[in-house]
């Protein structure tokens, strides 16, 4: 299927941007913005907004435009810059990996304090931000553990699919997943204990 990005003439547009044409810059950004936002939204750490990463990525893309030699399609080049920017932010977030109850928003705290037996997520009155909480928890993990648990528990991939993607053996994937689930669960329990101590 041909997407609007496929039909767009990137090389002509890049040539115009190199000649300082502002309308060409605007149309290049319009073409690439959904792609950059999609990657940033999926891979950003909890503390950084996807819009901030997008802004940083476009600044880099335009400053390094002369380095693009056309060996790969332009959107691939931009996707790579976006992924690397997210990775860099995640590395920085991991340095400060101690998560505290006060780091969570009220919506994220609501997910932790909810009684799993009492109600299903849909009929809760208090708004919940489970995705935000998951991002915060994932930021406490090293990159490999984060990858395995994201693929297994959040993207719903099977162990054999993860083995194919990562090149790991099935037992390594299973043991890592088991350890990481326990680690994340313990972090959640520790946060709840902090809440009890504070209140």
């Amino acid at each position: 299927m041909e997407t609007p990005t496929d039909a767009f003439d990137f090389s002509a547009c890049i040539a115009r941007v190199r000649a300082d044409d502002e309308s060409a810059a605007r149309s290049l950004i319009d073409q690439l913005h959904p792609l950059v936002m999609r990657i940033a939204h999926a891979q950003r750490p909890a503390a950084i907004a996807a819009e901030d990463i997008a802004q940083e990525v476009f600044a880099k893309v335009f400053q390094r435009l002369d380095q693009y030699q056309g060996r790969a399609p332009f959107p691939h080049w931009v996707a790579r810059i976006t992924t690397l920017a997210c990775l860099e932010h995640r590395r920085r977030a991991w340095v400060r990996r101690e998560l505290r109850w006060s780091d969570l928003s009220e919506e994220q705290q609501a997910v932790l304090t909810a009684d799993p037996e009492a109600a299903a997520p849909n009929d809760i009155e208090r708004p919940r931000d489970a995705a935000g909480l998951v991002r915060q928890l994932l930021d406490t993990l090293p990159e490999k553990e984060r990858l395995i648990i994201t693929l297994l528990d959040l993207e719903g991939k099977s162990v054999s699919e993860i083995c194919t993607l990562t090149g790991w053996g099935a037992s390594r994937v299973k043991v890592t997943a088991w350890r990481v689930r326990r680690k994340l669960g313990k972090t959640a329990q520790r946060l709840r204990l902090q809440e009890t101590a504070e209140s």
């Binding site: 997910v111 528990d153 313990k186 959640a188």
Partner: peptide
Amino acid sequence: PTRDWLRIAAEARPQL
């Protein structure tokens, strides 16, 4: 503790 994580992940999956 695994139970806690799995509940949170299940709730987050549609949002993510």
